[in-house]
Design a protein around this nucleic acid. Structure first.
Lengths: 228, 228
DNA sequence: TAGTGTGAATGGATTCACAGCC
DNA sequence: GGCTGTGAATCCATTCACACTA
């Protein structure tokens, strides 16, 4: 594998999509795939896929394409998912609870090993949506991170607590934060943060829908109808 | 407001972040803010913020900055969130259920008005995490979309059903899809799609964490310790 | 012939730098 | 003096086009 000669972030994001598609092809018992075919499936150009992969090494065979099993293995290595990651969850509310039940994580090698909450009423009880996990009090956080070698955390606490929890997680030694609170987390530069703001996603849809001419027109006629 | 003279997608994404920060400032009873100050809070350059806003109009005052209330109103208009959007949810599983309870949507003017599932055991019952909503059978989808003027949908069904549901939603008249399934949805080009793949987000963290030298080093010594 | 890997060309987005305004 | 709005310059990502290989 090539060394990190400054790889574009968009390329890394697409790597995950390539992997997802390769897993589909693998399930279809396919052996080889070309950049063209991958591109068609993902609505990307073939040259982009070749360029992205070339950042990391030479995985293809001219005239043949890429070996699906081999490329899958290689992308997993690149993404660091050729191992199991222990993950902890902070926040046993609705969202946290749902995330703990999400099967997709385990499929990719992410193992949820601990759940924390500050609410004493929840502590000591199993999670409804995943009874294997007993909620621990947030003050157990630091010791558990060390004992169980946890490097990744999902932060599913309310917005007003998110920054403080992030700080504690980082101080405890967590290296990557998956943040659901609608705030910009401030952390050391050697800690990775990936944020999903659910409301922002809907806002983006709102923008795109509002832009499309067909929608604008239909809204106009709707309002005309109402006035009458 | 300027007409759509081809606006960069990244600029639109940042608009949501500006809005989020403006709401914080508004809560602090602030009147004005400069691009510099906004930039510091969001870790962006001041010129980027000015350029982004300039795509849509002239909202600032030289020497003074931007009026917080005014800019907030303007960005809401741009994003199309100066109105209420009716939203439906498909999939009353763990994730869908959690999403239905998420307060953040309502705060931004997104009103969840219907929930659908194919499981007859769930139909007719209220959602545990949001008892105001009664789960309807998926076959009610088409009529409800029309009757209740629903333009946005959250798709929280399993991966193998996601494409089929997306197709039905679009055919029923939904114009924007918020997709949680780990698949590339194929829809008409006038329909907006915004996808969040939770496992992909963790994969990206895994990559970033694996890259940092400090992590690589600590893993090496950990393995050494284990061998002894 | 089919398809990769990659330098060169293009296209976009970000930053710079400054005129103009409060 | 402080700050916006914006062309120009720079930086980065994507696409093109083709030499090369199986």
């Amino acid at each position: 594998m090539k060394s990190d000669g400054n790889i574009p972030a968009p390329a890394v994001r697409r790597l995950s999509l390539y992997l997802r598609q390769l897993e589909v092809l693998w399930g279809d018992d396919r052996q080889k795939v070309s950049s063209r075919e991958l591109g068609n499936a993902l609505r990307l150009t073939d040259s982009q896929i070749r360029k992205d992969l070339a950042y990391f090494g030479q995985f293809g065979q001219a005239g043949v394409g890429y070996d699906i099993a081999e490329l899958t293995t290689n992308i997993r290595k690149i993404l660091g998912t050729d191992r199991t990651w222990n993950v902890l969850l902070v926040g046993a509310g609705n969202l946290g609870s749902a995330l703990s039940a999400y099967r997709g994580f385990a499929k990719k090698g992410f193992r949820l090993v601990a759940v924390f909450d500050s609410d004493r009423k929840k502590v000591g009880k199993p999670l409804a949506s995943n009874p294997d996990l007993i909620v621990q009090h947030i003050d157990e956080l630091e010791s558990q991170v060390k004992q169980r070698e946890i490097h990744l955390a999902i932060n599913a606490v309310p917005a007003d607590a998110a920054q403080q929890i992030a700080h504690r997680l980082v101080k405890a030694g967590v290296k990557g934060l998956f943040n659901f609170a609608p705030v910009n987390l401030d952390v050391d530069s050697d800690v990775a943060v990936s944020s999903v703001d659910l409301a922002v996603q809907l806002e983006q849809l709102s923008f795109q829908v509002s832009m499309t001419q067909s929608f604008v027109e239909s809204e106009k006629t709707r309002r005309r109808r109402k006035k009458q």
